[in-house]
Design a protein around this nucleic acid. Structure first.
Ligand code: MN
Ligand code: MN
Ligand code: MN
Ligand code: MN
Lengths: 151, 151
DNA sequence: ATTACAATGTAGCCTTGGCTACACTTGTGA
DNA sequence: TCACAAGTGTAGCCAAGGCTACATTGTAAT
């Protein structure tokens, strides 16, 4: 098997392997953070709106079973993002609050940029829910700049 | 337990539950497609560049073990996106090619928009690798429009 | 023909994020 | 007081995507 058959010269450009692997790896890392970020953001919102964040409410809003929500809350605790005592609701640690704040900033900025680009608001909100988890500092900065510079 | 304590009136606005659940659900669906989309796009690129797509090459470019790549290739087959016979490389079905084409279009469009917004190219490429999986038709259209209207 | 090595495949393990089904708390209202 | 329903927790299942370790196959060179 060994080597590539040199059938024909590469006629299509690909990024160098290590570069491409790094990019994909970054995406995978982000992937595993998606759920934690959404939970943190939602819990912060519920706490702000209702003064409490109950597993059932979290589950309902996420559209998952309460069992799933509870398991993920356990993961948030393991990650040092939340605290929760049985039957007593969920709270965010400082770290959790920081994360929630950062996610909220990204969420708003992404929605605003999409809207500014002419995306209808429901689509903007829905897409932002995914996009928000992949926006680097560079992109964030560019987004803010773009919004400012264009009123 | 029953009802929410009416401690105080909700002072923060949240989207209606079903709406929010639908958005999150959409994101989860996209999530499970991320890997398939990246594989399809990469396999198409390898086929175009090298005339073949071998599990090892796929693995190297994704930054993943060959065992992982092989398992995912099996999933692509199950999903009707690829064909592969032992020791004979991976090929895309028509469905697989279609998917790869659509993903490539999104990828380019996202990169172009990020670049146009002033994001440095390496960050644009890296972020696009994630963002591309969450861009709806609406947003795609808006992106294309934006690029056209601004030269 | 043999051999050596790269590539491929397989097995078995882990974590995560889903689910359903069932059991236990808790707060309210009768 | 106490029953009952809502909320919460637990157990056990599944698929996916990751890994390492080991076995097999193909091919290119000798
Ligand atoms: Mn989100
Ligand atoms: Mn969000
Ligand atoms: Mn991608
Ligand atoms: Mn891509």
């Amino acid at each position: 098997m060994a080597h590539h058959p040199a059938h024909h010269a590469p006629s299509v450009e690909l990024p160098a392997e290590p570069t491409q692997a790094r990019r994909f790896g970054k995406t995978r890392t982000a992937l595993s953070a998606v759920v934690l970020e959404d939970y943190a953001e939602l819990i912060a919102d519920l706490l702000a709106a209702n003064g409490e964040a109950r597993p059932t409410d979290i589950a309902r809003r996420l559209g998952v079973s309460h069992a799933t929500a509870i398991k993920t809350i356990a993961r948030l605790k393991r990650a040092g993002l939340a605290t929760a005592r049985p039957y007593r609701g969920v709270f965010l640690t400082e770290k959790g609050h920081d994360l929630a704040d950062r996610v909220r900033v990204r969420h708003r900025l992404v929605v605003d940029v999409l809207r500014a680009l002419g995306v209808p608001s429901e689509a903007a909100e829905a897409d932002a829910e995914g996009i928000e988890h992949y926006v680097s500092e560079s992109t964030l900065k560019a987004f803010a700049q773009f919004l400012k510079s264009r009123g």
